[in-house]
Simulated assay, not measured.
Amino acid sequence: MKPMKPTVSIEYCTQCRWLLRAAWMAQELLTTFEDELGAVSLHPGTGGIFHIAIDGREIWDRKARDGFPDIKQLKQLVRDAVAPERSLGHSDRPADHG
């Protein structure tokens, strides 16, 4: 039996009309991590929620972080959780030589 691949969940606020933002982020993650992710799921919510988790572990909360991740930042967070050895090419952070 193959091990289960990680699942990203994105909970977005329907009152704020953030479905398109959530769907675009899901598309970007599925395109970038097509071999590493098992699924990206979208969950409607209310009250200004925009929460992203991998297998139930939070990687982003809009209220706690005072905003949305840019796509480069989100890809880095997902990569660090599901494929830390993987390069993201032009989306990667510069190496820390400090």
Rank of each mutant, 00 (worst) to 15 (best):
M1D: 08
M1Q: 10
M1F: 09
K2F: 08
K2S: 13
K2L: 12
K2N: 09
P3S: 04
P3L: 06
P3M: 10
P3A: 11
K5M: 09
P6R: 08
P6V: 10
V8A: 04
S9M: 12
S9L: 04
I10Q: 02
Y12I: 06
C13I: 11
C13S: 15
Q15L: 08
R17C: 09
R17Y: 10
W18R: 12
W18E: 08
L19T: 08
L20V: 07
L20A: 15
R21P: 01
W24R: 15
W24V: 13
W24H: 14
W24N: 15
A26S: 15
Q27W: 11
E28L: 11
E28H: 06
L29S: 10
L29H: 13
T31P: 00
T31G: 13
T32H: 04
E34M: 02
D35I: 00
E36Y: 01
L37M: 09
G38I: 04
A39R: 12
S41V: 14
H43Y: 01
H43F: 05
P44I: 02
G47V: 06
G47F: 07
G48Y: 08
I49L: 12
F50S: 03
H51K: 11
I52Q: 00
I52M: 10
A53R: 10
A53D: 14
A53V: 05
I54W: 02
D55Y: 07
I59E: 00
D61A: 10
R62L: 10
K63P: 00
A64W: 02
R65A: 08
R65M: 09
G67W: 03
G67T: 05
F68P: 00
D70W: 00
D70A: 01
D70S: 08
D70R: 09
I71F: 03
K72W: 00
Q73H: 13
Q73Y: 09
L74G: 00
K75I: 04
Q76T: 11
Q76V: 12
Q76F: 01
V78M: 06
V78N: 03
R79M: 09
D80S: 13
D80H: 05
A81Q: 14
A81P: 01
A81G: 02
V82L: 04
A83E: 04
P84Q: 05
P84K: 08
P84G: 11
P84M: 12
P84H: 11
P84F: 12
R86M: 15
R86G: 05
R86W: 03
S87N: 14
H90E: 14
H90V: 11
H90Y: 07
S91N: 14
D92T: 04
D92Q: 15
D92W: 03
R93A: 14
P94Y: 02
P94I: 06
A95C: 01
D96M: 06
H97A: 04
G98L: 09
G98V: 07
